[in-house]
């Protein structure tokens, strides 16, 4: 076991875990931030997507020992009141079915729009292709990303 200090959603958190513990399980088991989901554990489904310095990263494949001073943002910290333009758009379009993958989808979309506020269809599909939605809400995801983009203008 080893002590780590990481910055999550603007707060410094100390945890004592195995150095190879994926950030996903630190968030869920140690910090109680369960919005970040486990889906595959091998960076194939995107359910565990968080932001590391604003970039979309699969937290299931990022060991805590590699986090260092990089700033982590999870779905819980994307906005204070759940009103980030992407979150608003997700509600307005009524995207979720089962909802399990949606935190990861939102984090991928938010990372895309922070760098590319007016993405092309091609840019959206490249950014969102790593996130599986087993229920098949992809059409609404597209609609919500476009809506969020218009909100950010």
């Amino acid at each position: 076991m080893a002590a780590f200090s990481i910055t999550v959603n603007g707060e410094t958190k100390s945890v004592d875990v195995l150095p190879d513990t994926p950030l996903l399980w630190v968030l869920r088991d140690s910090l109680g931030l369960v919005g970040t989901k486990y889906g595959c554990g091998i960076a194939q489904c995107g359910s565990c997507t968080v932001h590391v310095n604003g970039n979309a990263v699969r937290s299931c494949s990022l060991p805590i020992s590699a986090v260092g001073s990089n700033k982590i943002t999870t779905i819980e910290g994307l906005s204070k009141n759940g009103d980030h333009p992407v979150q608003q758009a997700w509600q307005e379009v009524d995207v979720p079915q089962c909802g399990y993958c949606q935190a990861g989808q939102i984090m991928s979309a938010a990372a895309l729009l922070s760098k590319t506020p007016a993405p092309t269809d091609e840019q959206i599909s490249t950014a969102m292709n790593g996130n599986i939605c087993r229920c098949g809400t992809y059409h609404r995801i597209k609609e919500a990303v476009v809506l969020a983009s218009s909100k950010m203008k």
């Binding site: 931030l33 369960v34 919005g35 970040t36 989901k37 486990y38 999870t74 779905i75 819980e76 994307l78 759940g82 979150q87 997700w90 509600q91 307005e92 009524d94 979720p96 909802g99 399990y100 949606q102 935190a103 939102i106």
Partner: peptide, 18 residues
């Protein structure tokens, strides 16, 4: 809209694994 939308998009504990 889905009654759980706000909880889902803000990452509240809703699922069994949570």
């Amino acid at each position: 809209p889905n009654v759980d939308n706000h909880d889902m998009i803000t990452g509240k504990p809703l699922f069994g694994l949570d």
